[in-house]
Amino acid sequence: MSGHAGIATAPARHRRPEPPHRTGGDRVRTVVRGFGEVLLTLGLVALLFLGYELYITNWFSAMKQRDATAALDDRWSNPRGTVDRPVEGDGIAKLRVPAFGPDFDFTVLQGTGADTLASGPGHYVDTAMPGEPGNFGVAGHRVGDGAPFNDLDLLQSCDAVVVETRDTWFVYRVLPLADEAAGWTSGKGATPQCRGVTPLPEPYPEVPGQQIVMPWQGEVINPVPGGSEAQLPPEQQDSLITLTTCHPRFSAEQRLIIHGVLTARYPKDGPRPPALADGLRG
């Protein structure tokens, strides 16, 4: 830094120097510096937003999920609790995937609005309720907001998806994957875990355990997944479960879909379903 040659007064100690006369160059420097500071600030804000999406929404979501679970437990333990049709945001069931560990335990809420999904997995209101014939459709976040369906892509055929309602445990198991359907009965289908799991019979179209579809393919949550609504009368429909989330992770270009079929039901005044003890995937 060079001295201020134009200033003739003696340097005044303990006093701020008079602001030097601003030149055109100073003004340019100020503008360029301000521009750089704005860019740095935007970068920091973007980083903060990333942290918000990936971590902080999980904290908010965990609080809402806790409240929803407490409200549901309260309703279940109240003997006079009515069984009216739930309204959007009400807890309706608990969802467990033993392959994801014993702490994978989410209260499923009624509806798939943004606020509902920020509290936990949401039930598509027009689809069947747990255990009913038809298709129990559930959507969940894969990134942020608790990310209940973060690892959905890791599910294998015959993995249990256990749904707990007020009085019943429903054990669904993931259908055979697309490349397993041929030779299922002599192959993986023969293992004890896969009892009750077979490729769905006619008139069901091919319903693989896992598929990736485009966002507008709402037919995956139909009572006959991938088929038309009226293909099969309700009393002949299998009880299915369909989980949907975004794909690939961090994107919403496609949807990851898991289909399962009901293989067992246990009244809650009896023993807990053995499927809950299915081990973690090694």
């Binding site: 937003f49 949401g122 959507a139 976040h141 393919q217 037919e219 919403a252």
Partner: peptide
Amino acid sequence: LFVVFPWVDPRLPFNDVTTG
């Protein structure tokens, strides 16, 4: 964190998890 991001979040395309 409490005003701007919660407002922006649902307007971004990467959190759609539903079909149809």
